[in-house]
């Protein structure tokens, strides 16, 4: 029951993870490296959504994209780590409930 609830709860961010991963593997390479930051804007947004969910993640990502202009210094700009590590990531980047069950 709890698992089902968590699955539904995490579904929106996992949908976003899937879309962003697809973008990062199909569209991004068309243009090569352009981002002045590390991690790149799309990678940053991906991590932010994984950690903070869709709404805060998209907001953080949008603000990061706004920072990424030719006059910006660039450099390292990591996603702040969330205080509570509630979930785990699969190899592909999907967010799943933590624990050692089948999940």
């Amino acid at each position: 029951m709890r698992r089902t609830l968590l699955f539904v709860l995490l579904l929106p961010r996992n949908v976003c993870v899937a879309i962003l991963s697809a973008y990062r593997s199909v569209v991004s390479p068309l243009y090569g490296d352009v981002c002045r930051y590390y991690p790149s804007c799309s990678h940053f947004t991906l991590q932010a959504i994984q950690r903070f969910g869709v709404i805060r993640g998209v907001w953080m990502g949008s603000r990061r994209i706004a920072r990424c202009h030719p006059w910006a210094e660039g450099g390292i700009d990591d996603v702040p780590s969330s205080l509570r590590q509630r979930y785990e990531l699969t190899r592909f980047g999907f967010v799943v409930a933590s624990g050692h069950g089948k999940g």
């Binding site: 490296d33 352009v34 002045r36 994209i65 990424c68 660039g74 450099g75």
Partner: peptide, 10 residues
Amino acid sequence: NPLSSCLPLL
């Protein structure tokens, strides 16, 4: 920084 940033693309 030699990279052009994400703005031109956007």
